[in-house]
Amino acid sequence: MSGLAMQALAEETPLLSVSGLTRFYGARVGCEDVGFDLYPGEVMGIVGESGSGKSTLLSCLAGHLETDAGKVVYNGQDVLTLAEPARRRLMRTDWAFVHQHARDGLRMNVSAGGNVGERLMAGGARHYGTIRQTAEDWLERVEIDPGRIDDRPSAFSGGMQQRLQIARGLVTGPRLVLMDEPTGGLDVSVQARLLDLLRGLVRRMGLSVVIVTHDIGVVRLLADRLMVMRHGRVVEHGLTDRVLDDPQHAYTQLLVNSVLPT
């Protein structure tokens, strides 16, 4: 078999394979029987109204929440049954999580450079000069002036904080990024700039992304495929353009129609 064919075959195995994922909050449903495959380099959008279970789903994937049933298979391993040291190592090397509020994902009392360098140092980097150089490179890549490397995130604007959070996550070259409403709470022009940046990084680094949002505009711009959730269940999924241009489920039709015309 030629190298190219091997590669094509490798690309057919999903990077992340979720099946039957279920989480209850007491008697209430958080999310129920959610399943999807995510292929290398693919961006998957999850949309739905507040309380539809999309954030619950993401928290379960990231291991922030206990799962009641289901499997999350990454690289042939069920992440949910992984021993904690191995799972946490995975989370800070191969995976990254972008919180809606940057202050949840950043250390606010540590300089920007320290924030970006933390995952490197956790991975055993012990050369100050190299760590600092890498941090500077990454600040530049997320369009933050490297001269502000020693400023604390509290001195940054909301958009900069969000970009710093992304740099902090991506510095170890992860393969999978989970994003929870990364553009929430930012004004429209800053949102646009952030989306532009994200799209560039995703394409250049070949990242696989699961992005949760309630903003149809965000998924249209970023996502290859789309999953629509309601009451904790997936009601529709497919290619983004297909779902948005030809919604089948009544709720998706409502969602698409409720977007203000631009």
Partner: peptide, 18 residues
């Protein structure tokens, strides 16, 4: 318990940076 001591070096990094 998990020997996650990266944070300790973040403190030393901050020292050198400042």
């Amino acid at each position: 318990a998990l020997e996650e001591y990266g944070l300790m070096h973040v403190k030393l990094y901050e020292d050198i940076a400042r």
